[in-house]
Amino acid sequence: MKILVCIKQVPDMESKFKVNSEGNWYNDTDLAWRMNEYDEYAVEQAVQLKEQAGDADLTVLSIGPDRVKEMMKKALAMGCDRGAHIADDDFFKKDPYEIASVIAEYAKDKEFDLIFTGMQSQDRGSGQVGVLVAEMLGLPSITTIVDFAFDGGQITAKRELEGGIKAIVKTTAPALVTCQLGLNTPRYPTLPNIMKAKRKELLSVPISELLKVEGKQETAKLYFPEKKGGGLVLEGDVGDLTDQLIKILKDKTAVLA
């Protein structure tokens, strides 16, 4: 069995963002980077499937500058067998269609039985890449899964819908699924596995070898939204803050009456 999991590196969302000099993305210096949260569930599910299948080969793929290899090593330490790094310093200028076409181009002759992606990235949040890859490869796809079972080529997944309702959906491999938060409990890589991961294959190819299409859209401008809320912001000593909040609650609400 051959499995592919696609992951993206994103900044910590608690970072202080700055707009880059071109005004079309955030500045990528002074940020802490991590694996996109949704993709951690994708990696874990892929590793679980590999363990279940026994005889399986699991590739982790990521597009981005050199720094994404750090995150890919984590995926290797979690249990992926090999890494395919698609090197691109300008990845943030690519739209979901271009990114998906690169992945599809990589995957097209490799006959993956199952492809896992996160349902969206935390920074861009388009939620398109997984479905696009599947459509480009002519595979069925199931999005937003919170439960996954595999039995002899048959996939049974639960899609999460609004209000916490789930839809039970079946399909057969080869297929692609996009993973939602809470799908499983992503493992922490152990020290021996981190050491082992260092010896695993992690090959870089330039994106130019795989990119054959042009984007259909671009970010014309990135900026901070106007603050509309305009609520009170209080900082300072905790003792003072509690006094201030008690006064506000007494003045503005009836909850302390």
Binding site: P11, M13, F17, V19, N24, Y26, Q122, D123, R124, G125, S126, E214, G215, K216, Q217, E218, T219, A220, K221, L222, Y223, F224, P225
Partner: peptide
């Protein structure tokens, strides 16, 4: 216009089609 990074940022998206 679409949100970026948990709505901390926004972007104007220019369609080419």
């Amino acid at each position: 216009v679409a949100p970026v990074c948990n709505a901390k940022l926004r972007r104007d998206v220019k369609a080419k089609t």
